[in-house]
Amino acid sequence: MAPTAPLPAIRPMLALSGALPGEGEEEHWAFEVKFDGARCVTAAPGDGTVRLSTRGGNDASATYPELAALGEQLRGRPAVLDGEVVVLDDQGRPDFGLLQRRMGVADPRRAAHLSGQYPVHLMLFDVMHLDGRSLLGSSYRERRSVLAGLGLGGPHWSVPAFVEGHGHQAWETSLRAGFEGVVAKRLSSRYAPGVRSTDWRKTKHVVTLDVIIGGWSEGRGGITGLPGAALIGVAERAGLRFVGAVGSGLSDRERRDLARYLAVIPRDTSPFINPVGVPAPHWVEPRLVAEITLSGWTSAGHVRHPVWHRLRPDLTRLHDPRPP
Rank of each mutant, 00 (worst) to 15 (best):
Asp131Ile: 03
Leu14Trp: 07
Val41Trp: 02
Glu236Pro: 10
Phe162Ala: 11
Ser248Thr: 11
His309Phe: 15
Asp47Gly: 06
Ala111Gly: 02
Pro94Leu: 06
Ala192Ile: 12
Arg317Ala: 12
Ala43Phe: 11
Pro65Leu: 01
Arg141Ser: 03
Asp268Met: 06
Met103Cys: 06
Val211Ala: 12
Ala43Tyr: 11
Lys202Ser: 06
Thr173Ser: 04
Trp157Leu: 02
Gly167His: 09
Ile273Asn: 07
Leu258Val: 10
Ser295Lys: 06
Pro6Trp: 08
Pro193Gln: 12
Leu315Lys: 06
Arg255Ser: 00
Pro3Leu: 06
Gly296Arg: 00
Arg110Cys: 05
Asp47Leu: 04
Pro119Met: 03
Cys40Lys: 05
Leu70Ser: 03
Lys204Cys: 01
Gly83Asn: 02
Arg110Phe: 11
His156Tyr: 13
Leu262Pro: 02
Ala229Gly: 12
Leu52Val: 10
Pro21Phe: 05
Arg253Ile: 12
Ala19His: 15
Gly92Trp: 02
Thr208Arg: 13
Ala259Pro: 13
Met1Pro: 05
Pro65His: 03
His168Tyr: 13
Leu150Asp: 15
Arg75Trp: 08
Trp297Cys: 10
Val159Cys: 00
Pro266Gln: 02
Ala112Thr: 05
Trp297Arg: 14
Val195His: 07
Leu311Phe: 06
Leu74Ser: 10
Val303Leu: 07
Leu7Pro: 15
Ala69Asp: 05
Leu20Ser: 07
Ala184Leu: 11
Ala60Thr: 13
His121Pro: 05
Ser158Gly: 14
Ile212His: 13
Ala2Phe: 10
Glu180Asp: 06
Val41Gly: 00
Arg93Ala: 03
Gly277Met: 00
Pro155Trp: 14
Ser295Gly: 14
Asp89Asn: 07
Gly137His: 03
Arg322Tyr: 12
Glu285Ala: 06
Asp314Leu: 05
Trp157Arg: 13
Asp107Ser: 04
Arg237Asp: 04
Gly57Arg: 08
Thr293Cys: 00
Ala68Glu: 04
Thr198Leu: 14
Ala245Arg: 12
Ala15Thr: 12
Val207Asp: 05
Tyr261Leu: 05
Leu231Met: 07
Gly46Leu: 14
Val243Gln: 07
Leu258Asn: 10
Thr198Gly: 15
Val33Gln: 01
Leu88Ser: 00
Val182Cys: 00
Val159Tyr: 02
Pro45Gly: 01
Gly215Lys: 04
Val276Phe: 09
Leu318Thr: 10
Ala79Met: 00
Thr224His: 15
Gly233Asp: 15
Val182Phe: 03
Asp257Ala: 09
Asp131Arg: 03
